[in-house]
């Protein structure tokens, strides 16, 4: 009985983790610019990882080291937002304009604009 409940919980957690990782992937592929992509990259992905790691922790049991999944989650929760912040900061530094709804430019055009600015600066 408990076994079945545990297995059910594992499957549920894995599915939830897959769902949020799917959201993250879809977001990174679909969203229009680097800033909005960083949203899903840092967040949906972290949550997906959280759920999946919970499933793993349930499955392997405490004595074989499931507490390591807690450590994994802890480090992911610290480092992932930092990475997203570092990347978006770099993008902002490079002069990539955030896309807005009023914007008819695609992200490649925004990126090219920022390149032109940088190159212009170099030539001077």
């Amino acid at each position: 009985m408990i076994e079945a409940a545990r297995d059910g919980a594992i499957v549920a957690f894995v599915l939830l983790g897959l769902f949020f990782t799917f959201v993250s992937t879809a977001g990174v592929l679909r969203l229009p610019d680097i800033y909005s992509r960083a949203h899903t990259a840092s967040q949906a992905d972290t949550l997906g990882a959280g759920f999946t790691l919970a499933a793993v922790a349930l499955a392997i049991g405490f004595e074989t080291g499931s507490y390591k999944t807690v450590l994994l989650l802890f480090f992911i929760f610290i480092t992932n937002p930092t990475a997203a912040h570092a990347i978006s900061r770099a993008a902002e530094e490079q002069g990539i304009e955030p896309w807005t709804t009023d914007d008819d430019q695609t992200d490649e055009e925004l990126y090219r604009d920022s390149k032109l600015e940088t190159d212009g600066g170099d030539n001077e």
Binding site: F75, I78, T79, T82, H85, A86, R89
Partner: peptide
């Protein structure tokens, strides 16, 4: 430096 990066490294480095 971004203080976010700095603090994160401060926390992560000992580990």
């Amino acid at each position: 430096e971004s203080q976010v990066i700095m603090v994160t490294v401060r926390v992560i480095a000992p580990f």
